[in-house]
Design a protein around this nucleic acid. Structure first.
Length: 476
DNA sequence: CCTGGAGTTGTCCTA
DNA sequence: TTAGGACAACTCCAG
């Protein structure tokens, strides 16, 4: 770099791997300085959780797409690995940057890291410019009469909507000045792809990571599926859900883009549109919750659950749940869909979670960790919040006595067995009542007997909750 | 200030 | 066969 340039800009990308509606990138483009974007793969766990296996596969492809998109616009993506704060400060030094652009993060450890980096940048004479991008509403802006985060979803979402419509999304900058030379790791050296064995075939069949794939998915959803969303979203075989979650998790789409696209789909009744937008509301709620509970993935929101008598883990039993060999068809179908595609239908997520927590009485954290490793959409807010919701320990959670019966759920939401047939080939020739309760109809070749008695384990779960309620409560 | 109703996603028993 | 109530406790808010 020559010494007479007026400055340089670094855009630090994290959960915002897109060029359109990216306020940090747009601000850098407007400033007109020579610019690089940087992404740091940080496995040190000093701040953020190490990404799970399925997410690492996704990240590889998302970064490849982003790098190509940035190069087309005239700049480049620098990849680093290691401690994120150290690496970003090193890039600021190497580029003799004058400006650092980023989109804000809200969980306490991430917020502190961003403040620490801003302070180190200031010491180098670098000005940090931060923007709001990840959420429709920033934590702290949606509060109850006491000025605190809502503990119940519906008042939260009503209050969020009273703040007005989310801002309009911005188009991608057509060009961003480049010209900076900075050391970058080759993408392949990050080791994000599974090699031996390569278990990602099902992911490749199912997904197109990256911003372009995200917009194609959004288009397809709004055109074909949105109108069936309200009545079809509960049926796992109906394919009525948007499947936008992994794109949102990596920030290939902003929630503003999704909100406005759905909100303005005039061909679809307003009640149906609002039903879907409420799901974006839950994403907001869960991330606001994370901003208030940094340990959401490890600590009960309701500390009463700290004394819950979880069952001792039997490794074979846990493995049977993880691998879809429980002998309960809907549970097995869901767990195999997860393993094959990195995704599971939301209703089935509740069923398999209820099965682990209430029928096996295993600590919800075990399930949360498995989902974290297997889901392409597991994020730090939604994944633990949903597990705590099912356990009953979370905010506005399901009441403890609500135990899903996986047989009844299958009868209600997969009555023709399409979903089970798709994912449990051993039962492909089984029809009617035997598909819901194969153990009542003689042994099925190659399909296991249930690992737990549904009725008796439900009774024991309710008794365990009763024991917890009677336990003396420690003052928090 | 008090009060009553409502609140993502359910199941089981009884009349 | 089917509809209604029980199953907790708490938060939020409208009246």
């Amino acid at each position: 770099m020559s010494d007479n340039t007026p400055g340089a800009a670094v855009v630090w990308l994290r959960d915002d791997l897109r060029v359109s509606d990216n306020p940090a990138l747009a601000a850098a483009a407007r400033a007109g300085l020579p610019t690089v974007a940087v992404y740091v793969l940080d496995d040190t766990e000093t701040v953020s959780r190490r990404l799970g296996g399925a997410s690492r596969w996704w990240l590889h492809h998302s970064l490849a797409a982003l790098a190509a998109s940035l190069e087309k616009r005239g700049t480049s993506l620098v990849l680093r690995r290691g401690d994120a704060a150290e690496q970003v400060v090193a890039v600021l030094r190497d580029t003799r940057a004058t400006h650092l652009y980023l989109n804000r993060r809200y969980p306490a450890p991430e917020r502190q890291q961003d403040e620490q980096v801003a302070a180190a940048a200031a010491a180098l004479g670098v000005q940090t410019v931060s923007s709001a991008a990840q959420l429709l509403t920033e934590p702290g802006k949606v509060v109850n009469a006491d000025g605190r985060m809502f503990g119940v979803f519906t008042p939260f979402w009503r209050a969020a909507q009273r703040l007005g419509e989310p801002r309009q999304p911005h188009p991608a900058p057509s060009s961003i000045r480049g010209g900076l030379t900075v050391r970058s790791e080759p993408l392949e050296s990050l080791g994000l792809l599974p090699l031996r064995p390569d278990w990602a075939a099902g992911l490749r069949e199912t997904w197109t990571p990256g911003e372009k794939g995200a917009h194609r998915r959004l288009d397809a959803f709004v055109h074909a599926r949105l109108q069936h969303y309200a009545d079809g979203r509960d049926e796992p075989a109906a394919e009525a859900s948007s499947r936008l979650s992994p794109h949102l998790k990596f920030g290939e789409l902003s929630p503003h883009q999704v909100w406005h696209r759905v909100h303005t789909a005039q061909a679809v009744p307003q009640a149906v549109r609002e039903k879907f937008l409420t799901e974006l509301g839950w994403r907001e709620f869960n991330w606001h919750l994370l901003a208030n509970h940094a340990q959401l993935a490890t600590e009960n929101v309701h500390h009463q659950f700290d004394s819950f008598p979880w069952a001792e883990v039997q490794p074979d039993t846990l493995a049977a749940w993880q691998q879809g060999r429980t002998g309960v068809p809907l549970v097995d179908a869901g767990m195999r869909q997860l393993w094959h595609t990195g995704w599971m239908h939301n209703r089935v997520r509740m069923v398999v979670a209820s099965f682990l927590i209430k029928n096996l009485r295993y600590d919800w954290r075990l399930g949360e960790q498995w989902f974290w490793d297997c889901l392409v959409d597991a994020d730090a807010g939604n994944n633990p919040a949903q597990w705590q919701w099912t356990a009953g320990s979370g905010a506005d959670a399901a009441p403890y006595f609500r135990v899903f019966n996986p047989v009844t759920q299958a009868q209600k939401f997969d009555p023709a067995g399409e979903y089970v047939h798709q994912w449990v080939p051993e039962l492909r020739d089984v029809q009617g009542p035997a598909l819901f309760e194969p153990w009542l109809h003689g042994s099925m070749a190659g399909y296991p007997d249930p690992i737990v008695d549904l009725k008796e384990s439900r009774r024991q779960a309710l008794a365990a909750f009763e024991q917890m309620r009677r336990a003396p409560q420690l003052v928090e």
